[in-house]
Simulated scan of single mutants.
Amino acid sequence: MSHERILHHLFYLLYIPKNHKRGKAYPLVLFLHGGGERGTDNQKQLLANDGAVLWASPEVQKKHPAYVLAPQARNTVDGGFALTRNTQNEIDLKNVFQFSPDLQKAYEVLQHVLTSYKIDQKRIYATGLSQGGFGSYQLNITYPRLFAAMISIAGGADPSKAGILAHKPIWAFHAEDDSIIPISYARNTIQAIQNAGGRPIYTEYESKYGYDHASWTPAYETKGLTDWLFAQRLSLR
């Protein structure tokens, strides 16, 4: 991942496909990290898990060359791609469906990248975990014609608005024994999308596996996940 300057008070990293051809449009994957990776070091969003690194790995890039954008949310009371903590930094989910200030900043950074590089407008993807899982849903609900598909891990969406995503290719993951974000958030979201006629893919890990909140570890190792994502294309009609 190559360093990029701070934009709109948000640090971010952008991977540019190696040997990319001038004038050719490439897909872009936006990765939104969780609460533990907030800060200003512009590194935690890469080092803590494979949420961003996966898409920039040599194996994936060889088959699916793509830009990878990984912004870093601020480590403040109102920081994060979803609001999951109170002023005492304790888990508090009453405002989790709000469009957070950092999510707005991430959207603005994404727009900057989309206008600065040759991006395939039919193949822009969003993925995130925990706070970023909620943020991925929120971005897709707010801008339903922007992303071709999304992957959410240990997150959820407002069930009253999730129906907007009925025609969106979605693959969601959650662990049954998640002690930070209750499994009900994923189940209620998926049920709402299904009730609206959607057919999301949903992978739930049973408690016996002991993943707890770290369901992103097996999720990003899921066979066929990268091929599935890059196969999705947005109809611009």
Results as ranks from 00 to 15, higher is better:
His8Arg: 12
Leu10Asp: 03
Tyr15Asp: 07
Leu28Val: 08
Gly34Leu: 04
Glu37His: 05
Arg38Val: 04
Gly39Gln: 07
Thr40Trp: 09
Lys44Thr: 13
Leu47Glu: 11
Leu47Arg: 13
Asp50Ile: 08
Ser57Tyr: 12
Glu59Lys: 11
Val60Asn: 03
Lys63Pro: 11
His64Trp: 12
Tyr67Gln: 05
Arg74Pro: 03
Arg74Ile: 12
Asn75Lys: 10
Asn86Leu: 13
Thr87Gly: 10
Asn89Glu: 13
Val96Glu: 00
Ser100Pro: 03
Pro101Ala: 11
Ala106Leu: 10
Ala106Ile: 09
His112Glu: 15
His112Lys: 14
Leu114Glu: 12
Lys118His: 13
Arg123Lys: 14
Ile124Asn: 01
Tyr125Lys: 05
Ala126Glu: 03
Ser130Tyr: 01
Gly132Asp: 04
Gly133Ala: 11
Phe134Ser: 00
Ser136Cys: 11
Leu139Met: 11
Ile141Lys: 03
Ile141Gln: 05
Thr142His: 14
Pro144Val: 01
Leu146Glu: 08
Leu146Ala: 07
Ala149Asn: 04
Ile151Asn: 01
Ile153Leu: 14
Ala154Pro: 05
Ala157Thr: 02
Ile164Ser: 04
Leu165Gln: 01
Ala166Trp: 02
Pro169Phe: 02
Ala172Asn: 06
Phe173Cys: 05
Phe173Asp: 01
Asp178Leu: 03
Ile180Phe: 13
Ile190Cys: 06
Ala192Cys: 11
Asn195Met: 09
Tyr202Asp: 14
Tyr205Leu: 09
Ser207Val: 05
Tyr209Glu: 11
Tyr209Met: 10
Gly210Met: 11
Asp212Asn: 15
Ala214Val: 13
Ala214Asn: 15
Trp216Tyr: 10
Trp216Asn: 02
Tyr220Gln: 09
Tyr220Asp: 06
Gly224Trp: 02
Thr226Tyr: 05
Trp228Ala: 01
Leu236Pro: 15
